[in-house]
Simulated assay, not measured.
Amino acid sequence: MNEMAALPVAEVKEKSLAILMGVGVPGTDAAQTVDALLDAELCGVESHGLMRLNAYVERLVQGTIAPAPEIQVTVRDAIARIDGGNGLGQVVMTKAVDTCEALAKTFGVGIASIRRSNHFGTAAYYARSLARQGCVGFVASAAGPTMAPFGGMDLLLGTNPFAVAFPGREMTFCADMATSAAAKGKIRIYAQKGDAIPLGWALDEDGHDTTDPHAAIRGILLPMAGHKGYALAMVVDMLCALLSGAALSGESSSLFRSDCPSGTGHFAAALDIAHFLSPDEFADRAQEWFDTLRSSRKRPGVSRIYIPGEPEADCLAASGATIRILRQTAESLEQNYQKYGA
């Protein structure tokens, strides 16, 4: 079983920044990337946190991610088309979200279609950013080929995550989910910890159900909710790839394959609440709704009803000056720091 390492957050942040800057990423862009990775870790979503840094570094060193991309934004009315210049996904998506917010404040809605980007961490990070600005935020991304069509065997779809966030008076609703039964990063965490995955998450290479995370990584991820997850994965591919001209999931390359650009596409939309009704009225009604749901009758054995995003918010609020990460991730961080950042 993989042990955990406890490290000061400040040290992890400093070393991560030094690593990215050591392979040519400008300071501001490095800070955006590290902030997104640490946010995932502190929210308890380690599958999209620091374990991804090593893959980013390999791609930056190989030249399949541009360390200082030329991001091109073309705006027509409330629509932005963004060419990410093959930059780090966190950098590209931050630009897209900022653009969507500005358009939404003018037109009531802002939509961005993004191509030539890369893995951007959690979709929740960007959707919550829009919610903090008084918007309903929607963010989605195509992903590398890991999932087959419902009933199929060929890897033609990705986990294709999406997130939706909006503000209440006391908390922010944020639903962030893969369209597969589980994110592949989560399965990698199970593999590192030496734990079996739940039945129904994946098939092995021969199409048989498996609880072995290593067989799942080599095999086929299953869609969430069967044919419904399959349909949603196609919707995300349409928004992120067909609309933008980016690679479809089945045409892109895995984050963990560093010999060619991934060609990832994203999609973002912001609705400015103030264009619809008073933001205070919206926040009050949302909070009343949340409170009604949370105080409703619970099933036997259930101690608490959560609003989507609440477990992650609780985890973030409870985080202190120390962060616990997988020892393998900590060792990779130190190796990269000694090689590129020290």
Rank of each mutant, 00 (worst) to 15 (best):
P69H: 12
C240N: 06
A318G: 04
L277T: 06
Q133I: 00
V92M: 11
H275F: 15
P261E: 12
D314M: 13
T292L: 13
V34W: 02
V57L: 06
E70W: 01
E46I: 14
P8W: 06
H214V: 07
Q338E: 12
R299Q: 13
A68K: 15
F267T: 01
I187S: 11
M1L: 05
A31C: 01
G219C: 08
C315R: 15
G226Q: 09
L20C: 10
C315P: 00
L50F: 11
C240E: 05
R324M: 08
D29C: 05
V9P: 01
P167W: 13
I273S: 07
A182S: 15
A163G: 13
I71G: 11
G63E: 08
I71V: 14
V235L: 12
G263V: 02
N336V: 00
A66D: 14
V302F: 04
K105I: 00
I65A: 12
A178K: 12
R132N: 13
T99W: 13
L277S: 08
D259V: 01
M234P: 00
R132D: 09
D212W: 08
L42G: 03
Q335G: 00
W289L: 15
S258V: 00
A283I: 00
P213A: 10
R132W: 02
G301D: 12
G134P: 11
Y126G: 07
T94Q: 05
G245S: 07
M1V: 04
M171D: 08
R257C: 01
Q133F: 01
G219S: 06
D35N: 13
K193W: 04
R128C: 08
G219W: 09
T33M: 03
E14P: 00
V25C: 06
R115L: 05
A231Y: 06
R299T: 02
S47L: 04
